[in-house]
Amino acid sequence: MTAGPDRPLVVLVHGAWHRPSTWDAARSALAALGYETRVVALPSAGRDPAPTASMYDDAAVIRKELDQVDGPAVVVAHSYAGIPTSEGLTGATNVAHLIYLAAYLLDDGESMYSRHGMDVPADTTGLFPLMGSPGEALYHDVPRDVAARAVEDLVDQSLLSFTGTVTRAAWHDIPSTYVVCDDDRTIPPALQETMAAHATATRRWPGGHSPFLADPQRFAALVDDIIRSR
């Protein structure tokens, strides 16, 4: 697959407990702006994910997807996906830009647990529990009918995936933009700000954790503006 410099391929990577279908509305909005998109299905999330599916497995799948792309690509990583995206795309010469959307943007040697000052549990098998009231945490500003469907589509997430430590973060070598969601009720905006300090540039979204569902057209316009401003 070949992309052009004016309209690079946009690769979308979903967060924990989600599936590729979470991007459907955003893909349609990006297509209306002339962008071809691809989505990555992370093995750590699913109706019955392998309990041994790790962040490194997710990173390998992301890298495999990008290895099939000729020409420039822009990768949008949401929430948890920021970790395997940073891990998997180090040295990827066809990635022109990384967009971290309310995402974990970690440095070398960091994990989600260390970022939160938590100890990794002794037993890392099984599933990481979904937060209480996911509709409020993830979709509080999403249209009610869309949010209800999104909650129904949430899947299980392996616990092991949250414990992986970044070995070499791709953002050291690939330009990046961090989108801080100012009314996020999942990853506190103050925490997002500290991670955004690693990025080349920072943008702001005046809403919650899932802009691609809250307002797909406006989200697509933001991605387009970031791409054009590189």
Rank of each mutant, 00 (worst) to 15 (best):
T93P: 11
L105E: 01
P5A: 15
V223P: 01
T37M: 02
G117C: 15
P134V: 02
S86P: 05
A31M: 13
P43T: 13
P206S: 08
L160A: 05
D182Y: 09
S161M: 04
H172C: 08
V95W: 00
S111V: 06
H198L: 12
L106S: 09
A32E: 15
A59N: 00
Y113T: 14
A148R: 03
A197E: 13
P216S: 14
A147W: 01
E193T: 09
S133C: 13
L106V: 07
D57N: 06
H198A: 13
S229P: 15
E87T: 10
A81N: 06
R218M: 14
H14K: 11
L105M: 15
D58W: 03
E136T: 15
L12M: 10
D141C: 07
S133R: 15
D67E: 14
I83M: 14
D58I: 05
Q217K: 14
V95A: 00
D107P: 07
S86V: 08
K64H: 15
S158N: 00
P143Y: 10
G135P: 03
D184W: 10
L213M: 12
A199Y: 01
M112H: 06
V166C: 03
F128C: 11
Q157N: 06
D48Q: 10
H18T: 02
V61D: 09
A103Q: 01
R230V: 06
R203Y: 12
S210V: 06
G164R: 00
A26E: 12
P121T: 09
P49R: 04
I227V: 02
D70T: 14
W23D: 07
S111E: 07
T200L: 08
G46L: 09
G117M: 13
C181R: 08
V61S: 09
A169F: 01
A137T: 15
L30Q: 02
D156F: 06
V166G: 01
Y35E: 02
A102Y: 02
